[in-house]
């Protein structure tokens, strides 16, 4: 009973998160302006991090936790660098 419930709820949650990643990717690809694309990228990495956490629950291994932590930190650095690039036109001043 509990195995059935967990399996199907995790599959459904992963489908929902996959749809959310599709929305973010759509915004990343279509723009219309550079700041919209970066906003899409920001949403994409948060959604991907949540997806990795659900994979961790599915496999029952806490190794996925480290991957999620790294995604969240690298995504932060990437978005900050890109926003800085938009503001000044160069990353390192």
């Amino acid at each position: 009973m509990s195995e059935f419930l967990l399996t199907w709820s995790l599959v459904l949650a992963q489908i929902l998160l996959g749809l959310a990643m599709c929305c973010a990717t759509f915004r990343l690809v279509t723009g219309p302006r550079a700041q919209d694309r970066i906003l899409g990228l920001d949403t994409l990495y948060v959604n991907a991090m949540l997806m990795v956490v659900t994979f961790g629950i599915r496999s029952g291994s806490s190794l996925y936790f480290e991957a999620a932590l790294v995604i969240s930190l690298l995504g932060f650095v990437a978005t900050v660098a890109l926003a800085k690039f938009l503001m000044r036109g160069e990353v390192i001043e």
């Binding site: 929902l16 959310a20 929305c23 915004r27 906003l39 948060v46 949540l50 629950i57």
Partner: peptide, 16 residues
Amino acid sequence: VLGGSAITLVGSLGLL
């Protein structure tokens, strides 16, 4: 897990 992913999907729909 379902509630969280549904809320995330709503947020990403807002992006569209």
